[in-house]
Amino acid sequence: MNLSLALWLTQDAVVNGAVYALLALALIVVYTVTRVIFVPQGEFISFAALSLATLQNGKVPGTVHLLIATGLVVAVLDGWRMAKTRDFSRLPRLVLFNIALPLAVAALAWWSASRPTDVWLQVLVTLGIVIPFGSMIYRLAYQPLASASILVLLIVSVAVHYMMVGLGLVFFGGEGLRASIFPGFNFDVGILTISLQSIGIVLSSVVLMVVLWLYFGYTVYGKALRATAMNRIGSRLVGISTEFSGKLSFTLAALIGAISGILIAPITTVYYDTGFLIALKGFVGAIIGGMGSYPIAAVGSLLVGFLESYSSFWASSFKESIIFTLIIPVLLWRSLGKHRIEEEEEE
C-alpha cells in the first residue's frame, strides 16, 4: 500500500460515504419523527436514478403514471374524509398537491422526454416525480397506523419496500441503466484523477447537510419536526400536527433519496433493486449514530465508506460481510451505553 493507492481508495471512500451519510440522515429524520424504520428509503434512489436514465433515453418513465395514480388515491381518501366532516377548507390544497402537481409533472416529463440533451430539465422532472411520493406514501401506508408499535411500522415498511421494488421492475425492466449528468470531465491533482461527478457528490452532500442543519435549527417547520421527535404528545399539545410532521419528514426523506439517486446515477449501473443495498449501508451509518445523532451518523457513514473501499481492495469477496458485521460491535457498544431510544419512545 503506497500513498497513491491510499489516496485513490480514500477518494472512493469519501464519495460513497457522502451518499451513505445523506441516506443515514434521511433514515434518522424519519425514525425520530415517526418511529418508522424506513426500509423503502432505497427505492427513492432507484426510482430517481432510473427515471432520470429513462428520460435521457427519450421515454417517459412509468413512475410518472404511478405518481398520478397514487395522487388520485390520496385525493379520494382525503376527499372522503372531508365529505364526512363537511370541512372543505383544505380541498384546494388537496387537489393542488395530489392531482394538479402530478399532472403538471407528467406534462413536464413528456416534454422533457423529447429533449434528451436538456439535463437540468431532466433532473428537475426527476425531483418532481420522486419527492411527492414521500408524503403520499406516509398518507397511505403509515398515517392510519401512526400510533402502532415500532414493530408493526417496520413490517409495513417491508411491505412498502417489496411493493416499490416490484413496481420498479415493471417500470424499468430487469437490466440496469446509467445516466450521465456532467460530461466525462476529469482533472488531475498530483497523482489523483478527480472526476467532476465525485466532486458534485461530495459538495451536494455537504450543502444538503448544512441546509438541513439550518432548517432544523432556524425555521419553524424544522423546529416543529424536532419537537415531534422529542415528544410526540407534548408537541401535539402545543399545536404541532403529528400528521403534518410525518408528511414533512417523509418528504425530506424522498428529497434526500431523489438527490442521492441523481448523484449516483452517473457513477454506477443502477438496477430496480439497487437502492435497497445502498440504503442498507446508510442504515449501518444511522445505527452507528444510534438512530438519533446526525453528526455521529454522518461520521459512521463515512466509516462505512472507508471500510467498503479498503475491504474491496484487500478482500473483495468478503466486502459486504465486513461492512454488515460492523453492526454487531456497534450494537454491543450501544446496548452497554444508556442511550436506548426505543425505550424512551414507548408510550
Binding site: T269, S309, S312, W314, S316, S317, K319
Partner: peptide, 13 residues
C-alpha cells in the same frame, strides 16, 4: 477480485 451487481464502485478491485 469480487464485486456485487449493486455495488456503486469497484475502485478498490
Amino acid at each position: 477480485e469480487r464485486y456485487a451487481r449493486a455495488d456503486t464502485s469497484v475502485t478498490g478491485q
